[in-house]
Design a protein around this nucleic acid. Sequence first.
RNA 1: GCUGGGGUAGCUCAGUUGGUAGAGCACGGCCCUGAAAAGGCCGGUGUCGGCAGUUCAUCUCUGCCCCCCAGCA
Length: 321
Amino acid sequence: MNPMLRIILGSTASGKERLALAVAERMGGEIVSVDSMKVYRGLDIATAKAGPDERARVGHHCLDLVEPNQTFSAADFVRAAEAAIQDIVSRGKLPFLSGGTAFYYKALLEGLFEGPGADADLRARFEARAAEEGSEALHRELSERDPGAAAKIHPSDLRRLVRALEVSYLTGESISRHQTQWTAFHADDPAERAAAFFARPRYPFVMVRIVRGRPDLHRRIRDRIDRMAAAGVEREARMVFEQRETISRTPLQAVGYKEFFPYFRGGETWEQALEKLAFATNRLVRKQDTWFRKFPAREVALAADSGMEEVADDLARTVFA
RNA sequence: GCUGGGGUAGCUCAGUUGGUAGAGCACGGCCCUGAAAAGGCCGGUGUCGGCAGUUCAUCUCUGCCCCCCAGCA
């Protein structure tokens, strides 16, 4: 029997990390970060990674797993997270999960299909072809090899077209044959889909989601950016900018770096860069919310100045007890 | 004060010879099975600076006024 997971969801800037820290501290827990960007060493400020103080208070896992020039996948995350969970439990502690990467939660709780991982050369070939002939060409080929997948993937969605073709070439089977775990999730009826979501999770879990109003969130995003600026994001972003040729593409896409590139090139002002960062952060929050709204979580409404400590007390005594 | 350019979506702007508007970004919704802070799909946004006039009809033409920018005084 897999151990029970206590999960605190929330978008970027929602305050989920602080809440998770407060609850874990009360209950003798440790935190497994569910975040695709915090796994990279040296990317600390823009990712709002837990610092030495937080880590001293509560044990943290799945941070700083790889160098920025290494690749990292959802499957890598699942392996690392499962090892961390076992480690925590073996020491008699409670595993808490917190972070903003919805896909990683799904991979851990519902599983990924058994299949081949990424093949860089193959992907490069498909991408080159898409650049030449357009992504529609890949879609046409997929229609022949795997009509089921082609029906679900939009002709413009290069990422998924490449993955589907990759699996087809590597296994000789269609990706739609492999992807059986989430089939109910693709049902046309919304109610059926909602019910299917995490219907048979790989771990038992209790999930709580922080909910805030948009105006509150917008204000918190501004504060977050101010804090990052004061903490020296400029230096960190400049480092990423200077190493952009060697850094792998995932961290290069993180919110908080690419927004500064035009500024470093001299084409924009610092203020314009911060403005862009605010936009990008808001877009991220919206995308996260779209996922999280569908997760089977108990909602916890937080107002602008509501006491995090009381909420932590309450959660420790009730839902997470 | 004069001359020229300009005032159209939250922002930057486009708008063919008059038929009451459109693109990017922003904003909002959705999709998502090994790159996911990524990638894709969909959707509005509006006293077209104001007031008169010409016209069947004006963002588009005319007049006056207001505001912004540049140059000259």
